[in-house]
Each structure stands twice: as C-alpha cells, then as structure tokens.
Design a binder for these strands. Structure first.
Length: 205
DNA sequence: TGCCAGGCCCTCTTTAGGGCCTT
C-alpha cells in the first residue's frame, strides 16, 4: 500500500484559530521513503513562545517564508491521491482541511491513524505518544532525529508504521494489510477490533 | 467579560465525566 505520511507543526491546537508553521510529508512505497516534502511557513502572527520552546521554530526562521495558503497547492500536488497516515490523525486532518479551505482547495482525504492502530496492536505500551512507542518498540529513527520537527516526526511515524504493518501481515499470513482493513481495525471498538484480527488470521489463505 | 480544540475511549457509563493524544 502506498501512503503519504504527514505531520504539521502549528501555533497551537485549534485548527480554527491556529496556523501551520511547518509541514513534513513523505510518499511511502514498499516501506521506503520514495519522495519527501518539507516547508516552513509564516503564520501571519507571532509564534507563541511555548511553541518555539517545543519545536525550536522561531519567528526569525519563518520571517521570509510563504504563508500556508501559498504552500497548500504544492502540498496538495505532492499528496496527490494517496491516502494519508499521521500520528493522532484527527489533529493533522483538521489542520489540513482548514488550511486547504483557506486556500480555496477543499477536498477531504482519507486518513489512517498510527496512534489508534498502535492502541489496538501495542496495548502494553506505557502510553501511545509517538516518541514513547518508538522507544518502547526498540525502533531506530534516523540519526539526529528531533521530536517536534515535522519531517523528523514523519520519519518516526514511518518507523512505527512499518512495525505495525509487519505485525498486521503476521495476522494476515504474510499478506500486506490494505487501507480498508486498517481503517476498520482502527475505527472499531477494542473488542470488535480484536475479533476482526482473529477472524482475519483464519480467513486469509 | 471571559473564554478559547476535538474526538476517541474507558468506566465507578448510556440522563456522564475525565484521560489521552496532537501543537
């Protein structure tokens, strides 16, 4: 399954009030990064100091950067028709929809959520934050990877997804899971998701 | 003036509340 893995750094949590200040995205093909896209953006107002402390993205870094509405057409072309994957996808899909609408480019995109899948497949993790899961599973993000920068968070999500996909393929007798199966798994209640896995394990030849 | 996200998910639930995740 080809996926676009995406992550936004923003000025806050509200898609209605806050703006995107950085996007990272990659096209994942056979578990490998085939293309990548990263861009800082100027939100049109000062970045809150809390966000600069969290992400390291300062007002000086975005001073000469384009506003989100200028970046969205290029991002839309990059994502093309790929289904998207993000960690806590409801957050990123809300911001993507809000910024696309501001740019006059409204289009709903299907999303998978690595956090919701991990809650089904890694129930014993201390918590389901991206960094915790990567550490808990012993995954190795690329050297120099820094949490809360968009492309680095994308690469950690890729590492997590590759682990989850391998685990799902184990349930499916080696067959790679498709989008519909992953979506069913992450949207069903816990007990129903567990039943879905058990049924898949015996029904896939 | 005062406030400011939103949706999933669990449970001491369903006539509800609060923790988890994302920035």
């Amino acid at each position: 399954m080809e996926l676009a893995v995406i992550d936004f750094e923003t000025t806050g949590l509200s898609a209605g009030r806050d703006r995107i200040i950085e996007v990272g995205a990659v096209i994942l093909r056979d578990g490998r990064v085939a293309e990548s896209f990263v861009q800082l953006m100027h939100p049109g107002f000062p970045i809150p100091s809390f966000i600069t402390g969290l992400t390291g993205i300062s007002n000086a870094m975005v001073r000469d950067m384009p506003p989100p509405e200028e970046v969205m057409p290029r991002l839309g072309q990059f994502l093309d028709r790929h289904p998207c994957l993000a960690h806590n996808a409801s957050f990123d899909s809300r911001f993507l929809a809000a910024e696309m609408a501001r740019a006059g480019l409204g289009r709903e995109r299907p999303f998978l959520c690595s956090m919701r899948l991990a809650r089904r497949l890694v129930p014993d993790a201390p918590n389901h934050r991206l960094g915790t899961l990567v550490q808990h599973l012993g995954l190795r993000p690329p050297d120099g990877c820094r949490a809360h920068r968009a492309l680095d968070d994308v690469l950690m999500t890729v590492a997590l997804w590759n682990h989850l996909e391998t685990e799902l393929a184990g349930w499916l007798n080696g067959k790679s899971p498709d989008f519909a199966f992953c979506h069913r798994l992450m949207t069903r209640p816990k007990a129903a998701a567990a039943k879905l896995l058990r049924e898949a394990a015996v029904s896939v030849p």
